[in-house]
Write a protein that binds this DNA or RNA. Sequence first.
DNA 1: GTCGGGATCAACT
DNA 2: GTTGATCCCGACG
Length: 205
Amino acid sequence: MSPDPLAILAQPAPLVAPALIGWTLTHHTPDGVVTVELTETEAYAGETDPASHAWRGQTARNAVMFGPAGRLYVYLSHGLHFCANVVTGTEGDASAVLLRAGRVVEGVDLAQHRRGEHVALRSLARGPGNLGQSLALTTQHSGAHLLDGGSLVLAPPARPPAAVSSGPRVGVSRAHDWPWRYWLTGDPTVSAYRRSKLASASLSR
DNA sequence: GTCGGGATCAACT
DNA sequence: GTTGATCCCGACG
């Protein structure tokens, strides 16, 4: 039998992130249902992680990350893009896993309508902001339980993915060299590796 | 009350 | 491969 999903999520983020590859996230809305199979994740450790929102302690926005595992943390990036995280670890430990990309496996028409009619199938949920838009996630969903049988459901796959790769994190200005980014090897929905601007700047020195 | 940074995306060369 | 757009949140005085 497959183990209790909550037991998996209660581990530290760097262990949960690779384990989440291949899981599905489903969002039931009045419009219909969209399901995304996760193909790319990224771990954030919390207070010990300079790149985490929780680095400087608890605030009103990131309070969800300090709570128990199995809940959703959504934040607004650059004033435009909604990015979704799964809260991991134990209560009081502000670790979380960022959902960077996925493949839409259910509700393609609805997701395509949300993203724009001429968006390629494989690009529907490529990138954290695009994934959030395909699932119609906003900050009002932050704190929602994912294992509660609510409108948002996170579920393990029938069988583990074939191969998972790991590498440096993307788009963060600090601690980018921690290999805490994981993706389904060879999957077209995974974005190409882009070193952060600050990282490439320090590299050229 | 003000300032500066940021876990991004899309378009253009 | 590279550059610009664009809004919110948190820190500090």
